[in-house]
Computed example of a mutant assay.
Amino acid sequence: MEKLDALLDEWEDTETLTRKAFIAIKDHIMAMEGITLEFNARPGVSYSLRPRHTNQSKRNLFAMADVIDDDPKERWLSVCFYEDMITDPDEEGDLIPEGLMGDDGYCFDLDEYDESAVEYIKTRLTEAFKSAVAES
């Protein structure tokens, strides 16, 4: 994933530590077995990491971890999931009607590193991964 590596190499983290948060999320995704990854780079707009489990036949991804790049000095994250693939017991996410590839989804935004928020998102990633594994 040359473009992903290039992003991480050129991204200088600020006091918000969003680069650190993205790396924690990326590493969690990349540790999952049986997935493929798509990385969509749109400099000045977003960088999108899109994992898909090989069992998935109805959808092209189970999550979308975006680095929002409208201001490269103040990047922030938006991690989104299909509504029916996760729970949100603490109601941390924003429900986005038809916002994820035309389906309802939840997005969790981070504008700074917060360990509990990163862990909450990683738990949602694990849920979405398990839902994707079960999909046929």
Rank of each mutant, 00 (worst) to 15 (best):
T54S: 05
A63R: 12
M85L: 06
D71K: 14
S116W: 13
D104W: 09
M64E: 15
G105A: 03
E92M: 12
R75L: 03
G105R: 12
D66I: 03
Y120E: 09
F81W: 12
E119F: 08
F108H: 12
R75G: 05
H53R: 01
M64C: 15
L95H: 07
G44E: 11
L110I: 09
V133F: 03
I86L: 03
D114G: 05
G105P: 06
Q56V: 04
E83C: 00
C107G: 10
S116Q: 15
D103V: 02
V67T: 00
L110M: 14
G93C: 07
M101L: 09
K58F: 04
D69H: 02
E91M: 06
S131I: 05
F62R: 08
A132I: 13
R50Y: 06
A132H: 13
R124Y: 01
F62Y: 13
K130I: 08
D104P: 00
E83T: 08
R52S: 10
T87P: 01
W76N: 13
N60C: 09
L77Q: 04
A65T: 02
D84R: 06
W76R: 11
L125T: 00
K73R: 11
E112G: 07
E115R: 15
D84K: 09
E92N: 12
G93F: 04
G93P: 05
D114T: 01
D84N: 08
G102A: 03
E98L: 13
Y82F: 14
A117I: 12
G44D: 03
M101I: 12
P89L: 00
E83V: 04
D90Y: 05
R75A: 02
L49C: 00
E74I: 01
E115F: 08
S46A: 14
Y120G: 02
M85C: 09
H53L: 02
L110G: 11
N55C: 02
S131R: 05
E74L: 09
C107A: 09
S48Q: 10
V45W: 06
T123W: 15
M85A: 08
V79Y: 00
E83R: 11
R124T: 10
Y113T: 00
D71V: 06
L61E: 14
V45T: 06
E112A: 13
E92I: 05
D111W: 09
G99Y: 13
G102H: 06
L49G: 08
G93S: 02
Y47A: 10
C107M: 09
A63Q: 11
E98T: 10
L49M: 10
F129K: 05
E98A: 11
C107F: 02
L100P: 12
F108M: 11
P97G: 06
P51Q: 07
D90P: 07
E115G: 11
L77C: 04
W76T: 13
T126A: 07
G105T: 01
D71T: 08
D88P: 02
Y106D: 03
E91F: 00
V79R: 04
E74M: 10
S48V: 05
F62M: 08
S131G: 05
M64N: 15
R52Q: 13
T123V: 09
F62C: 03
R50A: 02
S116A: 15
P72E: 08
P89A: 02
F108V: 04
D114S: 13
V45M: 08
R124P: 09
I86H: 04
E83P: 01
